[in-house]
């Protein structure tokens, strides 16, 4: 176990294993009543050390797995229906349904191949079927894919009303959306914990997707705890043309630092055309620079110097500008577990 004042991951907390397993078992018994089999990914704990002002961050954790299984069929329609294999334990019908038109659970494809790490919101479920909001078939050969289901991370689950450190109606989180809009949500400290800053509508259920970054605004410097489950395997994160794509890795590193090369952006960015902007942790969103892909490396947008080793603080997000919609395949930062 390493504690460096910023990050500490329980991936390495073998010495606390009994306590860890107890907490994992407790969480799973509360949340995973439908599971055929459930992964026991390590619990993670992180501290957001925030300067006064604006900071770019990403949640480096996910929620506990609620179900894991294999499909016997996936339909090739706009809203694919995954039929569970015959050996799967029956689901409770409707348990993964959208609530008020908003997704609450998602499917993640585990199979290796082009669809690995793909995430699709669940619309509804029956006892042996799950309907998602996406046609999964174009992403790969998925007829008998293996997959898992997790609850979405929301503003409430990430920073519940009981979060210490955040100041009600003064601190907030700004999210960016595919249609090039953004909304700032205010922490309330009561109820769902969050409201839309413009409309004051409850916003605790606002989803934060895996890899989706956000700007957190605080009036004074503070440190905020973040907990969750370490996610194994790659993750596909959508990037949208003409939008602010604020994204980050699910890298629960101990050292607190990673580099641009850890993002594996050259694999998806059009060389010399699409770019990545990083930010310092000053609270003022000062940027040391923007970086392009050369096709194999990241290079400085001004000097074209190799920039693979440019540091990016762990749990910081970056802005990726793309000219056409595509998925960034975020590398895996944890390889055991599932």
């Amino acid at each position: 176990m390493v504690w460096n004042g910023r990050n500490y991951i329980m991936n390495a907390v073998v010495r606390r294993l009994p306590l860890l397993l107890l907490s994992v078992a407790g969480l799973l018994s509360a949340q995973v009543i439908h599971a055929q089999s459930v992964a026991t990914n390590p619990v993670g704990y992180n501290m957001f050390t925030l300067p006064a002002g604006n900071s770019v961050r990403v949640n480096t954790f996910v929620q506990a797995t609620a179900f894991q299984g294999t499909a016997s069929n996936v339909t090739n329609v706009a809203n694919s229906v995954i039929t569970l294999s015959s050996s799967a334990t029956a689901l409770t019908s409707g348990s993964f349904n959208e609530v008020n038109g908003e997704p609450t659970y998602y499917v993640e494809i585990l199979d290796t191949g082009s669809a690995q790490g793909l995430i699709a919101d669940i619309v509804s479920n029956g006892t042996n079927t799950i309907t998602v909001d996406t046609n999964l078939i174009p992403f790969g050969t998925l007829t008998t894919c293996s997959f898992l289901v997790r609850p979405h991370t929301t503003l409430s689950s990430l920073f519940p009303a009981t979060t210490t450190g955040l100041t009600p109606y003064s601190d907030g989180i700004k999210l960016f959306f595919p249609n090039n809009t953004s909304v700032t949500y205010l922490f309330t400290g009561t109820g769902d914990g969050w409201v839309n800053g413009g409309t004051f509508a409850d916003a605790g259920a606002q989803v934060i997707y895996p890899g989706q970054g956000f700007i957190i605004s605080v009036g004074s410097a503070k440190t905020i705890p973040v907990t969750g489950y370490v996610k194994p395997g790659p993750t596909q994160v959508p990037l949208y043309a003409g939008a602010i794509n604020l994204v980050g890795t699910l890298n629960p590193v101990i050292s607190g630092t990673q580099t641009l090369s850890n993002f594996d952006f050259p694999a998806i960015l059009t060389p010399y055309s699409e770019a990545v902007k990083i930010f310092n942790d000053t609270g003022l969103l000062q940027s040391p620079g923007s970086y392009l892909s050369s096709g194999t490396n990241m290079i400085n947008g001004g000097t074209f110097a190799n920039s693979d080793s440019v540091p990016v603080n762990a749990s910081n997000s970056v802005i990726v500008s793309v000219s056409q919609n595509k998925n960034w395949v975020m590398p895996s930062f944890y390889t055991s577990g599932d």
Binding site: A52, G53, L186, I215, S217, V218, G219, L285, I319
Partner: peptide, 18 residues
């Protein structure tokens, strides 16, 4: 309060009387 400062793009200010 740093949230009462005009933000750099794409940041946000939160001007809360409380």
């Amino acid at each position: 309060n740093a949230n009462w400062v005009f933000p750099a793009d794409p940041g946000g200010a939160i001007v809360s009387l409380s």
